[in-house]
Amino acid sequence: MGFQIKHPFARYVIRKAMTYTILWFLATFINFLLPRIMPGDPIRRFIERVYTMGQAPSGGVTQVIPEFEKYMKEVERIFGLDQPPILQFPTWFTNFLHGDWGFSVSYMNLPPVKDLVLQALPYTLTLLLPSLAVSWVVGNYLGAYLALKGGKADKVGLSVLQFIAQLPTYWLLIIFLFIFYVKLRWVPPTGRPSFMIPSLTWEYIRELLKCMALPLTTLTTVGIGGWSIGMRAYVIYQLNSDYIKYSKSLGLPQRVLGRYAFRNALIPQFTAFAINFGGMFSGNLLVEMIYGYPGMGALLATVMSNLDVFAMQAIFTFTATMLLIANFVADIIYGILDPRIRRGIIEVMT
């Protein structure tokens, strides 16, 4: 290395960027290789399904098309699938970067995977972003309140929150569904806004809000539990640190100490928020599947049940990319918020 980057923060950012680029290549490659070394042939299955009209004839697909094996060879030659996976990877990778994510064999009309993702993504984001934001804000204030209050309220509150955070979201959703649909009929039975073309009209938004009510409530409830437990632990850690003890000995009021602890405890919560933001892009599989909400999770469930390797690869690579970007952003935020990293007082490895 002939040159040295002088500014410590720039060095930190560049090191992080390099690490995440390597991670991204690794993740993409594993994601590409894995389905290819697993048994099962999705193209063969799709062609069989098309030609046999979904029914399995007793003699297999060759009973319907005698020269099936010959056609299969031809298909594999055209798409380059007869080559070893290592040689297929560059082609697939450049196509992925150019926005050609392949075709989904889950549906009979072979829709491009990119279109499927672009249809599902807005639904997932409108569901998960408000729930993440609300549970983050409420959880932070609740956790800090419990930590600063202490005593009996803290003990009881922590136990309740730990119980809530442990609840499986899908189970809570099932119970809400039973109460609010089966018993009270306040919400629709499924999360799919039916018989309506997605638009920004008032009617559609009202319909969507009705469909979102249950999963939103569920995810926010469980989210508040998790965020507040984390925040409480961070605030208590800050309250036991030396600078708070020193400030206390100087005679600063409890209110000011609490504010100091709160602000410093918020740093890891910010980075956790960024990481969770990246994790949002894969949707919540079980909740979306149970309630039939047309987001990324439901798409992933559909695609997986059809052994649709092409769509799975593209979606997994996309979500992994978003996750890694979010992690990178989280590290940058951490670097900016923590003056020790910003000014290069401590060096953070990897």
Binding site: N31, L34, M38, G40, L285
Partner: peptide, 21 residues
């Protein structure tokens, strides 16, 4: 370990399990 912790394990698990026939 850091690499695997970045990715939500439930999705990886689901991916692996769904690739098994």
């Amino acid at each position: 370990a850091n690499f695997l912790m970045v990715i939500p394990m439930f999705i990886v698990l689901l991916m692996l399990v769904s690739y098994i026939p």
